Amino acid sequence: KKFFVCHSSQIAIVMAHINLSENTKLENEKEPIPEEDAKPENAERREFMIKAGSVCLGGVVAIPPIAAGIAVLMDPLRRKQGDADFTRVTLLDALPEDGTPKKFTIYADKQDAWNKFPNTAIGAIYLCRKSDGKIDAFNVVCPHLGCAVVFRESERDYYCPCHNSAFDLETGTQAPDSPSARGLDSLEVKVENEGEVWVKFQNFQPGIADKKAIV
């Protein structure tokens, strides 16, 4: 009979190989882990990309209505300012033929940046019908400091009671001793439709020698 003598170190190596083989076999028999479960960060990344795409798409869809809203809000600011239209004031037969001026209030649709006020009083004028048929129109605002002038029948002139400025009835020119730097502001007039008197009403800056429209 032959006997084999094994050292303890050799036995330990053999046992280690046996354990390794058994562990490998058990690992192979386990149910494989799905790739998605093995890498949960992939699912999180996909969810993030979906949400980000939805936000971007929503932003793109919202651009047209937002742009349209801005255009509506900005529209009054883009409109040309200072364009005065002719306003129908009265009939030619309503003006005295002897040249006596008559005062009229001007009504128009007033608009600021975003609000519109229909048929609002925006000022007043004097209309004077001359013997030759011509019609003069003057803004009632005194060019000195913005008070309202009145017609003085006794003096046959326009007079500002605030600072004693006087203006010629025919031409609107200021009197030599008047503090006003210029005469009354004349306005364009036209007669249409068989006797309708139309005036291009404007207000002008007071306190200066030049006639500059307020816009």
Score class of each variant (00 low, 15 high):
A166M: 11
S154A: 10
G195H: 07
G146E: 02
E44V: 04
T171E: 10
H17E: 06
N119E: 11
D157W: 03
P65R: 09
E36I: 12
A16S: 07
V197G: 14
C6Y: 12
A62Q: 05
F201K: 02
G99L: 05
V89M: 10
E188Y: 02
G82I: 10
A124V: 00
I63T: 14
C147W: 03
T87P: 00
Y158L: 08
T87R: 14
A166Q: 13
A108M: 01
E36G: 03
V141H: 09
K212M: 08
L26V: 00
D93T: 15
F167M: 07
K110E: 14
V191Q: 09
E170L: 02
G207Q: 05
T105K: 14
R45W: 06
G195V: 14
T171A: 07
F4Y: 13
A124H: 01
Q10K: 06
R152Q: 08
K102M: 14
R152G: 00
L95T: 10
C6M: 13
G183D: 05
L20M: 11
T90H: 00
D136A: 13
V150W: 02
L91V: 10
K190Q: 13
C56N: 09
A52Y: 13
A213C: 05
N42R: 09
D210K: 15
A16L: 06
E22F: 07
E97K: 09
T105A: 15
A137P: 00
P76D: 06
E170C: 00
E192T: 15
G59F: 10
V5Q: 13
E27K: 09
Q202D: 12
P32A: 11
T173M: 05
D37A: 03
V14L: 06
D177T: 15
I70F: 15
F104M: 01
H17V: 03
E44N: 07
D157L: 01
A84W: 01
L92D: 11
Y158E: 12
E44H: 04
A113E: 11
S8D: 12
K102D: 06
G59N: 11
I70H: 01
N164T: 14
K80Q: 12
S8Q: 01
Q202E: 15
K116V: 15
D109K: 01
E31Q: 08
L73C: 12
P101Q: 04
K200W: 05
D98E: 12
P64Q: 15
L127N: 14
N42E: 10
F86H: 06
V189A: 06
I13Q: 04
G53W: 11
A12T: 12
F3D: 12
I106Y: 07
V72N: 10
